[in-house]
Design a protein around this nucleic acid. Structure first.
Length: 205
DNA sequence: AACGCCCGCAACCGCTTCTCA
DNA sequence: GTGAGAAGCGGTTGCGGGCGT
């Protein structure tokens, strides 16, 4: 594990994975003194970690009310619903999932859900290649969704009520504004469709 | 059995926001 | 009002394990 000195006081700062000893020190210290100012907590506890690192470790892993293990289908739906509403506001989303951390939700989104969006995008690109038809201009004028350059999929609905729902998902511009239209158009992927793809896929796993 | 690839997750980094003197 | 330090947040990275060849 790499250690490096960080400041004029020549204090070694440990980085990388936490050891069981460090975990125990942190747990015991917080049990006795409670959470406090993280930088001084780290120092007082004798941990060669930054306050930030201690805070993260505590909040995401050591806290007694952290729920670990599989995300349930209910939680999954809730995550998707809240993400559609708020975008990548992971901590805000996490507040509605007791015991789940923003980091966990963020990872879950990136590793699971985003994958399906990518698949949807690929399928969509494929289908638009197959049906590369002349009446595209009518489609273009009425379409509520536009598939952009290779790594963008933009989904729009008619109304335009939210200011900041421009969610960038690892190069995928995922715009969701207001209610999704349920009407099906070749280039429209509604939230419901994305959800059902996700659920279908899970059912087959 | 060995190797390479892929995926999931823990942890770090840097920026923003909050709090307080 | 403002500046400094702490906390919060989202994006990114790196490692380890599982799996296919």
């Amino acid at each position: 594990m790499d250690k490096r000195t960080c400041n004029s006081q020549d204090v070694e700062v440990r980085k990388g994975p936490w050891t069981m000893e460090e975990d125990l020190i942190l747990i015991n210290y917080i049990a006795n003194h409670g959470e406090g100012v993280w930088n001084s907590l780290a120092r007082s506890a004798g941990l060669k970690r930054t306050g930030k690192s201690c805070r993260l470790r505590w909040l995401n892993y050591l806290r007694p009310d952290v729920r670990r293990g599989n995300i349930t289908p209910e939680e999954q739906l809730l995550i998707m619903e809240l993400h559609a509403k708020w975008g990548n506001r992971w901590s805000k989303i996490a507040k509605h999932l007791p015991g789940r951390t923003d980091n966990e939700i963020k990872n879950y989104w990136r590793t699971r859900i985003q994958k399906h969006i990518k698949q949807a995008e690929d399928m969509n690109r494929l289908s638009s290649n197959i049906s590369d038809q002349p009446n595209n201009d009518q489609q273009a004028s009425t379409s509520q969704a536009s598939i952009g350059p290779p790594d963008t999929i933009e989904i729009y609905s008619g109304n335009n009520n939210n200011n900041n729902n421009n969610n960038n998902i690892m190069g995928t511009n995922f715009h969701h504004q207001g209610n999704f239209s349920t009407e099906t158009n070749e280039n429209i992927w509604s939230m419901e469709e994305l959800w059902s793809m996700q659920l279908l896929n899970d059912a087959t796993n």
